[in-house]
Amino acid sequence: MLCGQQEQLPEDRTTTKNLERWEKIGLLRQGPGWELNEQLLTSALRARARPKPEGVQRFFNGPRLLSLPAKPLNGTRCCARSGMRRLALMRN
C-alpha cells in the first residue's frame, strides 16, 4: 500500500494524471486505495541497473578521471591508463 493511502489525495490535475499514467503501465493498481505493483517496480529497477565497474575503471567515467585513488598502486594504474589514452589520441 502507498503511504498516505488513507488520506484524501489532492485533486491536483497533475497528480491525477500521473496516477492514471502509472495505473495504465501497471505500476499501480486501484482498489480501496492505490497498491504498488512491487514485482513490476523491482524488474524495472533491475533492468535499469548498470554493472558496477571494477578495478581502475571505477575511478573513470569514460575518459574522465572522477576521483584520485587513495592507494598508491591504484594511482599508478590510473596514471598509466590515462597516459595510454593520451598516447592513442596523439597518434590519431
Score class of each variant (00 low, 15 high):
residue 53 P to S: 08
residue 32 P to W: 13
residue 45 L to F: 04
residue 68 L to H: 08
residue 29 R to P: 00
residue 44 A to G: 07
residue 27 L to T: 00
residue 6 Q to V: 01
residue 5 Q to H: 13
residue 30 Q to H: 14
residue 3 C to Q: 10
residue 55 G to K: 03
residue 56 V to N: 08
residue 31 G to N: 11
residue 1 M to Q: 13
residue 81 R to D: 10
residue 29 R to F: 02
residue 75 G to F: 10
residue 12 D to N: 13
residue 12 D to G: 02
residue 12 D to I: 07
residue 65 L to I: 10
residue 89 L to S: 10
residue 26 G to C: 02
residue 57 Q to V: 08
residue 44 A to N: 08
residue 53 P to T: 03
residue 32 P to N: 15
residue 68 L to K: 08
residue 43 S to Y: 03
residue 63 P to H: 08
residue 56 V to I: 15
residue 91 R to P: 00
residue 92 N to W: 08
residue 28 L to G: 03
residue 24 K to I: 00
residue 28 L to F: 08
residue 2 L to T: 10
residue 70 A to M: 05
residue 51 P to F: 02
residue 47 A to G: 05
residue 46 R to A: 14
residue 73 L to Y: 07
residue 67 S to P: 00
residue 22 W to C: 11
residue 3 C to D: 13
residue 6 Q to K: 11
residue 16 T to V: 13
residue 86 R to M: 09
residue 72 P to S: 13
residue 8 Q to Y: 09
residue 65 L to N: 09
residue 62 G to V: 05
residue 46 R to K: 10
residue 4 G to Q: 11
residue 68 L to I: 13
residue 81 R to T: 12
residue 38 E to K: 06
residue 50 R to I: 07
residue 32 P to E: 15
residue 25 I to S: 10
residue 20 E to L: 14
residue 88 A to R: 07
residue 89 L to V: 06
residue 32 P to I: 13
residue 58 R to T: 08
residue 60 F to W: 10
residue 83 G to A: 10
residue 73 L to K: 12
residue 11 E to I: 08
residue 48 R to T: 01
residue 56 V to W: 15
residue 59 F to D: 05
residue 5 Q to G: 11
residue 50 R to M: 11
residue 52 K to A: 15
residue 39 Q to Y: 07
residue 41 L to V: 07
residue 49 A to R: 15
residue 23 E to D: 04
residue 88 A to E: 10
residue 20 E to Y: 06
residue 69 P to L: 12
residue 66 L to P: 00
residue 46 R to T: 05
residue 49 A to K: 15
residue 27 L to R: 02
residue 54 E to D: 09
residue 43 S to L: 03
residue 29 R to M: 03
residue 45 L to C: 04
residue 15 T to P: 00
residue 56 V to T: 15
residue 78 C to K: 03
residue 52 K to C: 09
residue 43 S to R: 01
residue 91 R to N: 04
residue 21 R to I: 07
residue 77 R to W: 01
residue 51 P to W: 01
residue 76 T to M: 11
residue 57 Q to G: 05
residue 85 R to Q: 14
residue 78 C to H: 01
residue 10 P to Q: 13
residue 2 L to R: 11
